[in-house]
Amino acid sequence: MADNIKVMKEKDISKVTRRAKTGGVVAKVLTYAFLVFMAIVVLFPFYWMINSSLKSIEEYRMSTPTFWPQHVMWSNYSEAFRVANLGRLFLNTVIVGVVSTILSLIITVLSAFAFARLQFKGKNILFAGLLATMMIPGELFTITNYGTVNDLGWMNTYTVLIVPFLVSVFYIYLLRQNFLQIPNELYLAAKVDGTSDIKYLWKVMIPLSLPTIISITILKMMGAWNSYIWPRLVANDDLHKLITNGLRGTAFLDEAGETNYPAQMAAVALVSLPLFLVFVFLRKYIIRGVSRSGIKG
């Protein structure tokens, strides 16, 4: 009886493992097929963007598309620069991105330091209040801010693109958490040595939380690069327009009112290129930031 059971067990086990093995191979193949297919779906728009950006307008319009341009038209890129005034748009975006990132970092570091290291009345209530504002959709602020910046006479300036978004509660929160991990003894020791707060921040806190600061910098720069709604509302003149706004305007219409799509695709590729470079070289910092936030830009 016992022998019988043992035999049956061995039989079953071998059957199960055999089934698992063949099932395993099939499953592996299906897994890879699915993943590779999805990877192609993810990558295809990028390929199509580059393919389209290098075609002549006649070739672009062919109802049976070519998968690589018959004549590679690099001139679409210079055309994009010319008609859409891309140079100016790039410059504006870089100015706004760099200035707002630097100012925002200073404000974030000082606030995070105060919340992480200093004792003051109402600290917890203030911090909770700040976190609560994160729940409110940004559109709710925009309505009033539009009037405020108008009253301040900031319309169509760089200021209007920079100042209203300098404080990010989320970044303050992120950096505060990081600062809290640095032992308080270091701060007290620095105080005994007579080191000033700013020097301590600069020499100890910032170097130790550099990864978080880099994450914040990248996300803030990407935010400037991708912002669309607010800039369109408050700074839509040629001198201050930002890059995303230039893409969906009327710049690519020719005299006959037809859109020059290849040039438009070239502009799209030019806008995507810096983001792509950031992605290739600084991916891990972006992932570190977004896996804690769920906020795009």
């Binding site: 999805m38 990877a39 993810v42 990558l43 295809f44 728009p45 990028f46 199509w48 963007m49 389209s52 672009y60 319009r61 062919m62 109802s63 990407m222 690069w225 991708n226 669309y228 995303t244 893409l247 969906r248 037809e258 859109t259 799509y261 438009q264 695709m265 799209v268 806008v271 995507s272 983001l275 792509f276 950031v278 992605f279 991916r283 972006i286 992932i287 977004v290 795009k296």
Partner: peptide, 29 residues
């Protein structure tokens, strides 16, 4: 890495690429 790539894109720019993939406006045979 590939699956994370769309995160780092400009919503409007790539939207225009999708529009071009679905329908070319004013194409001719």
């Amino acid at each position: 890495t590939i699956f994370f790539l769309p995160y780092v894109t400009n919503t409007i720019a790539i939207g225009m690429v999708f529009a071009a993939m679905f329908n070319i406006v004013g194409s001719f045979i």
